[in-house]
């Protein structure tokens, strides 16, 4: 029994020696020629690395440009309406007015 299974294992191992080489279909080279004609020429094809470099430099250029512009162009100052200032800080405004009045009074 053991001998039989050993023989079967050896037969299976040796079965690979009896295999003929598999061959591609007769249209293989024709299909490949079509694919090659459809793919762009190697000389024209930009490599992924150069594409990456171009994209990165473009991004950096735009980023730096924005940064420089931000630093050099001053921010537009908001025009404050004095009446609105008075409304929002009315307590402080009264206090100041009062203290000035008091000071003036003392001097007099």
């Amino acid at each position: 029994m053991k001998n039989e299974s050993t023989n079967l294992i050896e037969d299976t191992l040796n079965s690979i020696d009896l295999i003929n080489r598999a061959e591609a279909s007769p249209f293989f080279s024709m299909k490949l020629a079509v694919k090659l004609n459809n793919s762009p020429s190697i000389n024209e094809m930009p490599s992924k690395i150069s594409l990456f470099i171009i994209a990165t430099s473009l991004f950096l250029l735009l980023f730096m440009n924005t940064l420089i512009l931000k630093q050099h162009i001053p921010k537009k100052q908001k025009e404050i309406d004095p009446s609105s200032y008075k409304e929002s800080f009315s307590d402080l405004y009264d206090l100041n007015t009062h203290s000035t009045y008091y000071y003036d009074y003392k001097q007099k």
Partner: peptide, 19 residues
């Protein structure tokens, strides 16, 4: 099933490729 395998060898080759 390897196309280069003869019919009598088919079963053994299939087992071998699986292994």
């Amino acid at each position: 099933n390897h196309p280069g395998v003869t019919l009598q060898n088919k079963e053994k080759a299939a087992i071998l490729f699986k292994a």
